[in-house]
Design a binder for these strands. Sequence first.
DNA 1: AGCACGCCGACT
DNA 2: GTCGGCGTGCTC
Length: 809
Amino acid sequence: MIGKVIVDVPTNQTDRLFDYIIPEVYQETVVPGIRVVVPFGPRKVQGFVVALSETSEYELHKLKPIEELVDVTPPLTGELLTLAEWLKEKSLSFYIAVLKVMLPAAMRAKYKKELWINGEEQLPQLPHTIASIFTDTKTPVDWDDLQKNGNEIQRKEIAKAVKEKILLVKPVVGTQETKKKRVIVEPVLSKEELEIRKLELSKGAKKQQELIHFFIENRDPIPVTEIIEKLKTSRSTIQTLVQKGILQQGEIEVRRDPYEGRVFTPSESLPLTDEQGVVLQTILKSLQSGKHETFLLRGVTGSGKTEVYLQAIEKALSLGKEAIVLVPEISLTPQMVTRFKERFGSEVAVLHSALSKGEKYDEWRRIREKEVKVAVGARSAIFAPFENLGMIIIDEEHETSYKQEESPRYHARDVAIERGKYYQCPVILGSATPSLESFARAKKGVYHLVTMEKRVNDVKMPEVTITDMREELRDGNRSMFSNVLLDAMKLRLERNEQIVLFLNRRGYSTFIMCRDCGYVAECPHCDISLTYHRANQSLQCHYCGHMETIPTRCPGCEGDSIRFFGSGTQKVEEELVKVLPDVRVIRMDVDTTRKKGSHEKLLDKFGRGEGDVLLGTQMIAKGLDFPNITLVGVLAADSMLHLPDFRSAERTFQLLTQVSGRAGRHEKTGEVIVQTYTPEHYSIQDVQQHDFVSFFQKEMMIRKQRGYPPYYFLALIHVSDVELTNVVDVTEKIAKFLRTRLSETTMIFGPVASSIPRIKDRYRYQCMIKYKVEPKLTETLEEIIKTYQGEMARSGLSIVIDTNPYMML
DNA sequence: AGCACGCCGACT
DNA sequence: GTCGGCGTGCTC
């Protein structure tokens, strides 16, 4: 038999199948989806068997055999292999990149080199500088370790010794998968024999008697730590019985449990509102029909979308099927996880970035080995290896984090629908503020639109007040809080209610500028201003990490009028304490949430009422649900309205709506105060009216006018290189080529410099394609890659193609 | 990506 | 004359 293998070498030339002989011993075990190690040229690489065949087109005598198997059972199912083919095509990525993205990081191959002494007789030949490193001929030394930790002389000596064949370099292919083991004990003898041995013990040996007694009742293996706790015994007592041949120790594999020790009280379905009921029934009807359908569930904040998801999943499970729930990373909060755990108990696996590699691996195996039926997670959870999917849910479907911005560039929504088609199951896209693309599709009837306009328990939508910061300035208020907001905050403090202050930092970072000559500190490697970091009193570049000290005098004019501009959460906190001296602020930003679990701690603290104000960035926009929050303040609503991105209005509307939704979710009514310099902008006006449809219509007009999605599809080609002339040259050629190839109705823009024209000393240009129908697109783009693959491999030239761009930078 | 093969410059 | 530069091409 022949195995068709995709090798782990991500290049254009190797992005195809390679044939390998399957050795006799592996005939039974090698199946599509399994990982193998194969000889590839002079080295060994990992690969995926994607198909089997009786024959090969390749010269048979040149075929090499598969060297070893990495898996016993294939990690990728047949469906995922089919999906990979589709995704490879759609995203223009390498097959291997797609296969790898479907598996948890721990399962990625690890290549390392080992240094061995080339036989006993070479031992005396070793130079004394490195002799101490090599103890004997049986222990290899890690090559990478040595390069890192050894000194220069040692590195040189080693290179020499390798050349003289005193030392041998052996490349090895391994994995990073580790399974957690636990020491267990179990009885060796039968029940009767245990009884006898127990009687034989001396009267004083109380602990041993207890232990044997335990195993008379329970014959199952039990972890040592567990039994010590249970019987208040000790390791030595167990050891004694092991020595006597009564018990034996062993190891069993255990799953790491990220939620170990946490108790989840099971919860029942909540009663549904009329609207929720209608939506649920519509979805269930589709589920039972066994036909694929994509639903767009638009439900205002607080309308109880999660409960609908939970009950829909429950139904899918009762039909013996499985479900995937995608949640944006940022809102994968403990609150959210708890809700699923309480409803579905041990049937849930959670996959998110806060877990360690090992924990993710174990959660993934729970899915693969059918120990769970529900997977809740961020983007990559869409590849959960279920084989009988009954439902896929994408919460907050408009979130841009569902788009992966590195190869393979995929959008989880597209993958979800593709899998939904395969399993003929419903896909539910939920949001209070759907993406324009999805809502347009729903209006066209491509998706099935279902709507929930009311909040549960008839809670009113919060009142939104817009304050014009220009007017505040005219009235002499130079602080970052408008008078309206300040008064509202004072009122909440009096009433002992809680406040959320939201500062959007995107496009609004702190920089330094000279008030005399206008000098702005910029990164020497990127065309962007440096950001002021208070923690270590430095200026940093967010794109390349460049760091420098803060100048005391202006480098431009030698003056001393260097000032800080913009405002970070720290600055807001300082200001806040100045105007409201007794206020207790809980600040949530990258600095205060860096440590694992700190996010949760801060929220808990706020939940317990140990803070009056929760001040934060994006991360507080979603999911938090505390009854005592009655005021939400948005400090700078338009900070991202002016970003060079056609979706900036949409993002502004979405974000403001999300944040507003944090206020007054329970009995107490909420108020939202939005500070802005552009109060007349429709994305801000429509937030005030809670009018998604109105916003949608206005934004659609603009998209139509400007030729953007959903009226046109986009593809973006990024070209970058250290040599500016080369970048311009290549981009120009690409644009020309596109114009000759693509149809007349397709528009090609460029070459133009990217909005950040230089990052890490590399110049960046781009070329944009807008099209409605373009059957030759993929083919043409592939041709471009092929044309430049040589140059890309040789020089530093890079061409990245995104067929569904979300980041316009 | 690695690695070998192969064809032109500065050295024992 | 050789050692070594990195351009080109292949890996079942």
